[in-house]
Design a protein around this nucleic acid. Structure first.
Ligand SMILES: Nc1ncnc2c1ncn2[C@@H]1O[C@H](COP(=O)(O)OP(=O)(O)OP(=O)(O)O)[C@@H](O)[C@H]1O
Length: 756
DNA sequence: TAGGGGAGGTATCCG
DNA sequence: ACCTCCCCTA
């Protein structure tokens, strides 16, 4: 391969970027605004280090996703053709270290299994049952989050738990039981990966020395979203030599809820005195209009150092804000819009739709299917949570990690052969008495006399499957072969024939996908192992599983969108209660973080940005009025033309509904016809700045039937104005047209015009 | 023991 | 509207 010349690395970089790339020893913080090229800086900096003669093995780069890691590794290797630097996420890095030195973290061994949240929850439930604790009172999910908090905030030190937490004693006991159960089964959760890495380094001076020496240059991306344990890992490795380069943007910190601590980046200068600080403020990604809305929005955050991104890019089209009747219309109109963009030549792969909640993908998906638009949902209902997948993985897991009794319990009766709760309980008590693992007991023929004939027979069925799998594994190391053996020996696909055709088909497809993943793993990892495959299934995130090269419209949450960019971006459901998200019961939402979330979404867009919101939306099966997000009013300045508000006119809406209703044969058409034009003009008011959509309820679409004490029944003709001055005009049957200020209107909604 | 049916609770966001 | 859990029956 022809080597890239030194200065070629510095082309396509602005002076600030270049400075960061060529910075030598010592701490460096690159505070980079959205789209200002920090990813490019890191990549080029690594390449520059390698080209200056630093061996790849001495460079450790931490990225936010495994996908970013893969791309960066590939990129740097291409830029300088030399051996690979270490590039991975904190979690993958930790897993690698822990497997390598597993004998130092007893009772774990190197084939430990990484648990996803579902596995952890199941284990908590098991423990609660064992302890006879009512899982209604102690919700496993929130227990788990308390446990996670203990690990992250107190770094596993439960000493003073009793005083801090409500029900501290119980929590502390459960925490210890959980930890013990995980150790017994050779299982690690995501927090453990990080926490044990800290312990590994702290308790083994030789290892710490060794890795400090090895990783002479450390780079961490998205530093604003690191948590306290990750911070500790980086300190352990980097404090002594100080060759730590971090990049991040406090305005893009969106993971506070899972323990990320923005102070890590804010205190960097204090932690590393004399650190060089480089600001990147030129945005190369977005049009002027998109950037203007992003800047206007984020400037509303109080807890923030002011910073204005600028760009030399053209203004571009205005940002378009659409208002729709409900989520069905929203989905349909988005599809229509996409169809016209695609027909005009936009590749599907250039388009992305973001939303706050995974649940929003459903309505969109239906319409995209209907409109024949290829799409890919990133994340969402977890593939690895499907029953058939969990079953198959369960077998793989017990083959890899015989101590994983949770997985064993899952699969010991697959296919069903009458081995139920009673037998499992018996197996467990025998295991406890003899101090053996559950699998040992199940496989030991000499213990048969401890079971009834019936139980013996059922256990024997499992035993013979297990033996065959052990044989299969001896014959071939490939994951695919083991998986096929499992399918063969359990008769899994035959099992599916018993159920409804459609469901069986779907499950078979899923199984096919898993086999496909195994085949791919075997191909890409000639030195691979079952352990490696299982680690990937657990540790890969939603974005990691997504293949950008496919020409499809991408659907994902705003969180998943971090770090990506698309020429065309749509953000759906920009409503109060959704974005910012309000929980019915619980605490105040973190408005500033929600605002940053929208900021992240907006700044993903290169050419065109559409934000949509609806007038009503179904939640828990009930139709609720929705209010435009307060953030929509924060996107503009008084004279700004970077934003355009759009509403379907009545004719279009009626005809679309008509068509659609006929085509699909829907029965309910009523509320959807007869809507008059809505009069939305953001600049009609003297002061649209400020409380534009002030969060007041505004359910008055044209055509809504309302009742008034004095004037009787009537129909909404139009609404206009903003905030306090927003008015609704109603034509009453007897009293003629009247106008009301919405915030003081004494109107009751009684239906839609077509109801009568 | 297994699987259906009804009831009741329920949704963030994720490596 | 959907999923999980529990109870009841075969
Ligand atoms: N010096 C430059 N000249 C031209 N284009 C650049 C330059 N630096 C970066 N870009 C382009 O700008 C876009 C954003 O870059 P990059 O993804 O590195 O930004 P980022 O800072 O990581 O963004 P974010 O923080 O928003 O995820 C990319 O399309 C990149 O190719």
């Amino acid at each position: 391969m022809e080597e890239t010349r030194f200065d070629e690395l510095l082309e396509e970089l602005n002076p600030a970027q270049r400075e960061a790339v060529v910075h030598g020893q010592g701490p460096l913080m690159v505070l980079a605004g959205a789209g200002s090229g920090k990813t490019r800086v890191i990549t080029h900096r690594i390449a520059h280090l390698l080209r200056s003669g630093v061996p790849g093995d001495n460079v450790l780069a931490i990225t936010f996703t495994n996908k970013a890691a893969g791309e960066m590794k590939e990129r740097t290797e291409r830029l300088c053709g030399s051996s690979g630097p270490w590039v991975s996420t904190f979690h993958s890095f930790s897993a690698k270290l822990l497997r390598r030195h597993a004998y130092r973290i007893e009772p774990y061994d190197s084939s430990f299994t990484i648990c996803d949240r579902d596995d952890c929850k199941a284990l908590v439930k098991t423990i609660l049952k064992e302890q006879n604790i009512d899982s209604q009172l102690w919700d496993p999910a929130s227990l788990l989050s308390s446990i996670s908090k203990i690990k992250n905030v107190r770094q596993g030190d439960d000493a003073s738990l009793g005083s801090d937490y409500k029900h501290g004693q119980v929590l502390r006991d459960l925490y210890n039981l959980y930890t013990e159960a995980m150790r017994e089964r050779n299982l690690l959760d995501f927090d453990d990966l990080l926490l044990l890495t800290v312990r590994l380094l702290e308790e083994n001076e030789d290892l710490l020395e060794r890795y400090r020496e090895q990783f002479r240059f450390i780079l961490i991306d998205e530093y604003q979203d690191t948590n306290s344990v990750q911070y500790r890992i980086s300190s352990l490795l980097a404090k002594s030599h100080g060759n730590l380069c971090i990049t991040g943007d406090p305005d893009q910190s969106i993971y506070h809820w899972r323990g990320a601590d923005i102070n890590n980046i804010l205190n960097f200068e204090k932690d590393y005195p004399g650190a060089r600080i480089i600001l990147l403020e030129q945005n190369y990604r977005s049009t002027g209009n998109i950037l203007a809305t992003a800047n206007a929005l984020i400037s509303r955050n109080i807890e923030r150092k002011p910073k204005d991104l600028w760009t030399e890019n053209p203004q571009g089209e205005p940002v378009r804000i659409y208002r729709f009747l409900n989520e069905m219309e929203e989905a349909r109109e988005i599809s229509t819009l996409l169809r016209s963009l695609i027909d005009a030549g936009t590749p599907c792969g250039d388009i992305a739709i973001f939303y706050r909640l995974n649940a929003f993908s459903r309505a969109l998906e239906q319409e995209l299917i209907y409109s024949n638009i290829p799409y890919a949902i990133v994340g969402g209902i977890e593939f690895f949570l499907r029953k058939e997948i969990k079953d198959l993985l369960g077998f793989l897991r017990i083959m890899d990690n015989p101590r994983d009794s949770e997985s064993l319990k899952r699969v010991i009766n697959v296919p069903p052969r009458g081995l139920g709760k009673g037998t499992i309980a018996r197996l467990e008590s025998v295991a406890r008495e003899l101090g053996k693992s559950l699998l040992d007991v199940a496989l030991s023929e000499e213990l048969d006399e401890l079971f009834t004939t019936r139980q013996r027979k059922a256990i024997g069925g499992f035993r013979s499957i297990h033996h065959k799998l052990v044989d299969a594994r001896k014959e071939s190391a490939s994951v695919e072969e083991i998986l096929r053996a499992i399918l063969r020996e359990t008769g899994y696909e035959r099992l599916l024939d018993g159920m409804g055709h459609e469901e069986a088909q779907e499950r078979k497809t899923n199984i096919g996908e898993l086999v496909g993943a195994a085949v791919e793993y075997d191909r890409n990892h000639p030195e691979g192992s079952l352990t490696g495959f299982l680690e990937l299934t657990a540790i890969l995130g939603d974005v990691d599983r997504w293949d950008r090269r496919e020409d499809r419209v991408s659907l994902m949450t705003l969180h998943s969108a971090k770090g990506l960019e698309f020429p065309v971006v749509l953000i759906a459901g920009v409503e109060d209660g959704v974005l910012p998200l309000l929980r019915s019961d619980d605490a105040e939402p973190d408005i500033e973080e929600e605002r940053r979330l929208l900021f992240v979404g907006i700044t993903r867009a290169k050419q065109a940005l559409y934000l949509t919101h609806t007038n009503s939306r179904q939640r828990f099966g009930q139709i609720n009025q929705s209010i435009p997000s307060r953030f929509l009013g924060e996107l503009t300045r008084p004279t700004d033309e970077s934003v355009e508000h759009i509403e379907l006119d009545a004719e279009t809406r009626a005809s679309l509904h008509g068509q659609r209703v006929r085509r699909l044969g829907f029965g309910r058409t009523r509320e959807e016809d007869c809507l008059d034009e809505l009069d939305i003009d953001p600049f009609a008011d003297e002061d649209p700045f400020g409380d534009f959509f002030d969060g007041d309820e505004d359910p008055y679409l044209a055509g809504t039937r309302v009742a008034h004490e004095e004037y009787g029944e009537g129909e909404v003709v139009r609404t206009n104005g903003f905030g306090e001055r927003r008015r609704v005009t109603v034509r009453f049957e007897d009293a003629g047209e009247k106008q009301f200020v919405i915030s003081h209107a004494n109107l009751r909604i009684i239906g839609f015009s077509s109801d009568s």
